[in-house]
Each structure stands twice: as C-alpha cells, then as structure tokens.
Design a protein around this nucleic acid. Sequence first.
DNA 1: GTCTATACTACGATAGAC
DNA 2: GTCTATCGTAGTATAGAC
Lengths: 206, 206
Amino acid sequence: MTQTRLLETAVDYFGRLGFEGASTRDIARASATAMSSITYHFGGKEGLYLATADYIAAQISAWTGPFLDRAAATDIASPAIATDQTLMVLDGIAQMMLSPETEHWARYIIREQQTPTEAFDRLYCGAMQRIADTLIRLVAIARPDLDDRRGRVTAVMLFGQAMILRSGRSAVCRVLGTTDLGDADKALLRERLRVNAASILSDTPR
Amino acid sequence: MTQTRLLETAVDYFGRLGFEGASTRDIARASATAMSSITYHFGGKEGLYLATADYIAAQISAWTGPFLDRAAATDIASPAIATDQTLMVLDGIAQMMLSPETEHWARYIIREQQTPTEAFDRLYCGAMQRIADTLIRLVAIARPDLDDRRGRVTAVMLFGQAMILRSGRSAVCRVLGTTDLGDADKALLRERLRVNAASILSDTPR
DNA sequence: GTCTATACTACGATAGAC
DNA sequence: GTCTATCGTAGTATAGAC
C-alpha cells in the first residue's frame, strides 16, 4: 500500500527533521512514489503530518495495550497489588522506550511535546491518555495517603524516569560510557526503574 | 550587539523549527539585521547553529553553577549530607526546568538529544557533564551499597524526574488539567520531586 | 491511483556598495 | 560591520496524461 509506505516514511522524516524540515519530495522518493501521491492520499503536507500522528498513536496503543489491559483486568484490592501493577506497566513503558523500533516515532512525539500542534491532541487522546489514566489510578490506590494532585504528579514522575530513556538518550549513553545501549545496559536500566518506583510507592509517611 | 541579538533569536528559531526548518532569512529579520550578517559573524547557517550551542551551554552553566558550586564546596562526609546536597541540586535543576526563560533553549537541547550533531558535544562538554558528574558523585556517597553503574543509572533517573518537567511539559499540563503551570503547580512538582528523590536515596537495602 | 510537467515561492550563499 | 541585489537550488501545489 502506497499510503502505509508514505506513513512509515513520514514518521521517520517528520520525527528527525520536523514539519518544516522534512520535504514532501524526499518523503515521496523514499517511499518510491510520486510526490503528488501525498496530495492525493492526504490532501497535502499537513494532512500527511496529522495522519502520521494517528498512525503513531495506533502503534503506541499496540505496544502498551497488553500491559494496560492486564492492569485493567486485575482486581486492585490493595496498595501492594496496585504497586505490583504499576511496576508491571512501567516496565512495559520502559521496554517500549528502550526498543529500537520505537526510536522513529518517539522523536515525533517529543517534538510535539515541545511545540504542540493539532497532532499532539491526536497523540494524547489516541494513546497517551489511557497510559496516564491507568498510572494515575494505580498510584492513587498504591498511595492512598496522597491527595489527587500529589498522586497525579507522582504518576508523572514515575513516567519521567522511563521517559528519559528516550528523551535524554544521548546523555544516558554518555553517563554509561557507551554510544549504544547494549542488552546488559537495558536490563540494568529496567532494574533500577523498578527499584526506584518501588521505593517511591512503598514510602508511606512515617 | 548584532551578534548577541542573532544568537538570542537563533536559540528560539532553531529550538522550535530545527536546523533545517529555521531559515536564516527569518532569523535575520527577527534580529532586525541583514541575512548576510550571519555569514559575516558566523560564517553561515551551520556556524550560527554551533555558536548557538555554546551560547546555550553558557546559560545552563549560569543557571546551575551556583548549586553545583555549593555542592562542590560542601564536605560530603556522610550519606545523609550527600542526600541533602542531591536534593538541593535537583531542586535547582527543577527550578531551571520550570522557569519560562529556559523554554527556548530547552527545545534546542531536547532536539539535539534525539539526533545529536556536533552541537551536542558542545552542550554536553560545556555544561551537562558537570551536572552529571556532580549528581553521580553525590549519589555514590548517598547510596554506597550501589555499584558504579547502578549509581550512575540512579543519578540519571533522578534527573529524569526533573527533565520531564520540560521534555513532557504538554503531558504534565494535561495530567494536571491546566494549559500552563501556575506557581502552585510548580511548588507541588518541586515538592514531589524532592520527596521521590529522598525515597530513592534513603532506601538502603533491608 | 499513480505518474510527469510546470508554476511559483522561499531557501542559503555571495558579491559589491557604503 | 552592515546593507541591497542577485544567483542557483529546492520547496509545495496543481494540472493533466495514462
């Protein structure tokens, strides 16, 4: 399908170069089709950009869906269970952040966070919202001592520890003294995320 | 100074639009000078881009310097003192991430993290390295039970919780139900970062 | 549906006046 | 140092053949 090929290429090009930096000529050439196919299928450059956001949202959902489903299917009867489920979901997110295939569209999302356009709405409503809602719900049960806003912030910061694996990848690599994260590095990062999250969630006030 | 005016504008334009997306014409116009001034002062578009990285590194150093200096001047005689100092440095970083003035160049850095160029070297060596080294050193003392690599990862993830205040700003705002972070939001975010970091650093193995 | 042609605009670099 | 003027290239969009 020309349409899918264009989307696949667009994720990469828009992610690396941004909306203005990416050229429809290049995207069309890399998709082995004519530039006017973009006009035909998506109405123009902007249409392609927005369609790319939907395409990415679908991929995020595919990645995180199984973990979120498992959390949704579990009866969260105690703070301990909520903590367990949070760690499970966070590890799923960390795996996503560490997976090479997610590199392309992660760039797109991070870019959209900095200067949100209509595409961010689609990303958030299409995929991120469910992740956020799940984490917030779990944290609320794991830490009943926190009020709503404090629970939400805690969920965000747990997410931040996973997020830096992508958003600060270059710095992470430098700190670990490598240019690319190996399997041992990834295992270590996931381990520490788990331990840190457990510390935060189990730290009931004294 | 035309040079400084160009740099100031370039931070904003390159940050928002990326290297390819930003046009020297626009940057010159917004700096109220001729496009050829860029060629004269920086040798061309790429020269301006790299000079912008140095300019940003200097600003980061100005922001974080006081906190890092204080940590460097303190005698870190115990894990408790190291924890205290870590919380102090992290709060400084959080303040930076929450400050509106840092929004422009944060975009530039985050972009460089995704697709590093020579400019990232300048940013890292010029400013980020000292922050990383300080945090790693403090964490190593606060948590002597962790080996070198685990200590480094912990430092990174502490940083990640502050970093998401910038790199995931749009998502943070949505989760808190606002479009802009108010003073109360910022205070809450700093408080939770502090509490979370304290949990992580004080969590000696049982 | 997909292609080639072309129209029009904007890009970065540079030469030369002041 | 800073400006205007201009060159060659590359951008998006669109019309029309197949």
